[in-house]
């Protein structure tokens, strides 16, 4: 890059940089400081304490962390299972069909996500569409009462997060040079071997992006658990909301948030660790 281009580029990113500094980095620092302060009635005093962090390891709160991690793990795994083959398959189709699948994936997202989630209530509720369909087909004899169960929450998570995986994988798989797969086959690799040694490593960046885009939100998405889980599934997101809005324990809410960030940060850091040249 020439010096002039560099200057132009700097000017172009400067507003965004300042915006991030003031509205993203600023609150983060504030939150970090807040997490070390002491609760005082409905407010807080700036007496330094580690008590907020100690509380996280309280049995109840720690269990919430584990519960969130479990749901995020299950959801992410399910999204990989459905999203990766779907994204890869769609990208390898002839252009017309590939574009159709990509567009079809995105159209529902023009509708508000809460509204779409409420649609699942109609399907999952007792004697709802799912129960009626299953009973009509003679698969079950009485209503399943699927709504407000753990699997219902997982289905909701998959539904909301699948497009992130699909699009991340699709984008990378679209650029995959199929001659490379043919070369692998020609050089002696069976279909599975060629997939494992060529297709998978070359689409791994898309898969990793998809995992990050799925895992991070799934740690925080508490409204799905609220709507489809009926608050039976308490997640770290709902705990933070509760501490902040109802218990008015801002320092503890901040400490929980910092802990959540650290947790997701570590997971993403492990994923992003790049192999040289890949």
């Amino acid at each position: 890059m020439t010096r002039k281009n560099q200057r132009t580029a700097t000017l172009a990113v400067l507003p965004m940089y300042l915006f991030s500094l003031v509205f993203v980095a600023g609150p983060l620092v504030y939150m970090l400081v807040l997490s070390f302060m002491t609760r005082d009635g409905f407010g807080f005093t700036n007496a330094f304490t580690l008590e907020n962090y100690r509380s996280i390891f309280n049995e109840v709160y720690f269990a919430t962390f584990l519960e969130s991690l479990k749901l995020a793990g299950i959801s992410t795994a399910a999204v990989i299972l459905f999203g990766y083959p779907f994204g890869l398959g769609a990208a390898l189709l002839p252009d017309r069909y590939a574009h159709f699948f990509r567009t079809a994936q995105m159209i529902p997202y023009f509708v508000n996500s809460l509204l779409r989630l409420c649609g699942w209530i109609i399907i999952f509720r007792a004697n709802g569409l799912l129960d009626k369909a299953l009973m009509a087909l003679g698969i079950t004899e009485e209503p399943l009462k699927f709504l407000y169960t753990y699997p219902a929450v997982v289905v909701g998570m998959i539904y909301v997060l699948l497009p992130f995986m699909f699009l991340s994988v699709y984008q990378v798989a679209e650029k995959l040079d199929l001659t490379l797969v043919e070369a692998a086959r020609d050089l002696g690799a069976g279909k599975i071997r060629a997939f494992l040694t060529v297709t998978l490593p070359l689409t791994l960046p898309g898969l990793k992006t998809g995992i990050i885009l799925t895992f991070i939100p799934s740690m925080g998405l508490f409204f799905i658990a609220s709507i489809l889980g009926g608050n039976k599934v308490v997640l770290i997101g709902s705990l933070i909301e509760e501490q902040l809005m109802r218990a008015h324990n801002q320092p503890f809410a901040a400490a929980l948030s910092v802990a959540l960030m650290l947790l997701t940060g570590v997971v993403c850091g492990l994923l992003m660790k790049k192999k040289r040249g890949a």
């Binding site: 040079d177 001659t179 490379l180 086959r185 020609d186 050089l187 690799a189 060629a194 490593p201 040249g277």
Partner: peptide, 22 residues
Amino acid sequence: AEPNLREVNTVFQSYALFPHMT
């Protein structure tokens, strides 16, 4: 026979070297 079961190898026009391997 599948391509991997033929003792025939190809040098592709685009070389088709695996970019993620040395």
